[in-house]
Design a protein around this nucleic acid. Structure first.
Length: 483
RNA sequence: GGCCUGUUGGUGAAACGGUUAACACAUUGCCCUCUCAAGGCAACAUUCACGGGUUCGAAUCCCGUACAGGUCACCA
């Protein structure tokens, strides 16, 4: 069997959003499933839409996601991406376009862009569909050649015989047939000499021996035209794998405009690349086993094109958040610590034990960026309402809390072995002696120490981290507040 | 508007003509518990957009309708 080769072929026109990333992921997985090659090719044939740094964003995003491509020009010992505009310098696209002109599958067109635009608007105004019927199609090759030689501006268009039908098989959507008369004779080579995406894409896919074309389903309707191109060249067609869209909501596809869907933004918000990748793999694809957490490597083994869905999937940030939490919880202790540490540092004095704080946080964090706010009380207890002492479960109210705090202070004052277990034992004994539930002592202590009704770690863990002096100080201060 | 594609709970989804229509997120309740989480348990679609048809039997096959998305660029 032929070696599987896939490619991710984005245009460098901005940020990398989740839909793009997912397409890249699927292309990668299709290749790796069969130990094939994954290629990165930047399609920058539109000189007007280039965005500075966009190629770097794409390159770095794939790198961060560990979606390594297998070949490309040498860049400091690494594989860089293939850049279409650089390949063009060798004039390859024009040569191929001319080949089609020669064998009658393409023709020169001298029509003015503005004229076509006007015709289109008239048609739209009438509510008619617009398919450009190119008069230049009927020029003889000699006539056309002469005008070209005279320096007239021209483009090269695909020539399509408007009879019969064209059918292609998509691995996801099945067999699709269209009438050739509905096919647009698209421009292959623009007047600036650059190829259009439509053309460069086909030529490059062939030259790079791409076996499986993985892309979004917005290309479904133009695929017949691509196939006609393959036939015109006499090239073997690739397998097509069109992916369903990733939606922002019921009606809109995900767009980079709204920011929060871009990979970079998600990372900044505290999402882990592994979790993002894992989550998006499940948008539009479902494994055959009942499992959701996958490493990249597991994904490439489990991935199966046949299980890619056909309908759009809405991006649900809530589930990503949950999954991010799973990754954080399952993470190796040291790696986890390195990740949360910067967020603890921002709000917590280094005199407190970061390791202990990180540990208290571990299965409570879903987003790294939430950490700052969760630990801000270590430095200082912010102003809070004594209503916080009202807690049904603890059977606590400000009055009871006052009593609890007094008991806690008395007991803790004499405790010298200052650690979580000892503190817990001491307070539990106090509760027991006074025929109270543990929580009736613990909860008020927690509020007194933090000014919050929810904290990472319980009252005793916070006490340990704060140290005896600070703990007693805060308890006494809280007591004053209750007087 | 023409053409192409899609439609299972709030969300992601499973089901390859015969199950009480999996599972996960979210939500709600209970348990555990020093708060919150985490973990455990349970509830949540009499029904698979709607209407016909085929079949002993349909979420699964066929037709139509509705709705949605894509496409119709010298953008990709």
């Amino acid at each position: 069997m032929k070696k599987v080769r896939t490619r991710f072929a984005p245009s460098p026109t901005g940020y990398m959003h989740i839909g793009n990333l997912r397409t890249a992921l699927y292309a990668y997985l299709v290749a790796k499933k069969d130990e094939g090659d994954f290629i990165l090719r930047i399609e920058d044939t539109d000189q007007n839409r280039l965005v500075d740094g966009a190629t770097d964003i794409i390159y770095n995003t794939l790198k961060e996601c560990n979606l390594k491509h297998d070949e490309g020009p040498d860049v400091g010992g690494n594989y860089g991406p293939y850049i279409q505009s650089e390949r063009m310098k060798a004039g390859i696209y024009k040569d191929y376009a001319l080949r089609l002109v020669k064998n009658g599958n393409a023709h020169y067109c001298f029509c003015k862009e503005e004229d076509i635009e006007i015709q289109k608007q008239i048609a739209n105004a009438k509510g008619e569909s617009f398919l450009y019927k190119d008069p230049c199609k009927h020029l003889s090759l000699e006539q056309a050649q002469e005008r070209v030689n005279n320096g007239e501006d021209y483009v090269i268009r695909q020539t399509i015989n408007p009879v019969g039908t064209t059918t292609f098989d998509d691995e996801v959507y099945g067999s699709i047939t269209v009438n050739n008369e509905d096919l647009d004779e698209m421009i292959l080579l623009k007047s600036d000499g650059y190829p259009t995406y439509n053309f460069a894409n086909v030529v490059d896919d062939h030259l790079m021996e791409i076996s499986d074309v993985v892309r979004g389903n917005e290309y479904l309707s133009s695929t017949p035209k691509y196939n006609l191109l393959y036939e015109a060249f006499g090239w073997e067609k690739p397998r097509y794998i069109h992916c369903p869209p990733v939606m922002k909501n019921e009606h809109e596809k995900l767009s980079k405009r709204n920011g929060d869907a871009s990979f970079q933004d998600l990372v900044v918000k505290g999402y882990l690349p592994e979790a993002i990748l894992n989550y998006i793999a499940l948008l539009g694809w479902a494994p055959s086993e009942d499992k959701e957490i996958y490493t990249l490597e597991e994904l490439s083994k489990a991935f199966d094109v046949k299980r890619i869905g056909t309908s759009g999937a809405i991006f649900d940030i809530e589930k990503l958040k949950w999954m991010n939490g799973v990754y954080l919880r399952n993470m190796d202790e040291d790696k986890y610590y390195e990740l949360v540490k910067p967020f603890i540092e921002k709000n917590v004095n280094p005199k407190y034990n970061y390791r202990d704080i990180a540990k208290a946080l571990k299965d409570r964090v879903q987003l790294l960026t939430e950490v700052e706010e969760m630990v801000d009380f270590f430095n200082e207890v912010k102003e809070y309402s004594i209503d916080l002492y009202n807690n049904k479960k603890a059977k606590s109210d400000p009055k009871i809390a006052k009593k609890s705090l007094e008991l806690a202070i008395n007991a803790l004052k004499d405790l010298n072995d200052w650690n979580n277990d000892a503190i817990f034992q001491t307070l539990a004994d106090v509760a027991n002696k006074n025929e109270l539930k543990n929580i009736t002592i613990m909860y008020p202590v927690q509020v007194a120490l933090s000014g919050k009704d929810k904290t990472p770690g319980g009252a005793t863990m916070i006490s340990q981290i704060l140290g005896k002096d600070e703990t007693i100080k805060r308890l006494e201060k809280a007591l004053e507040k209750l007087n």
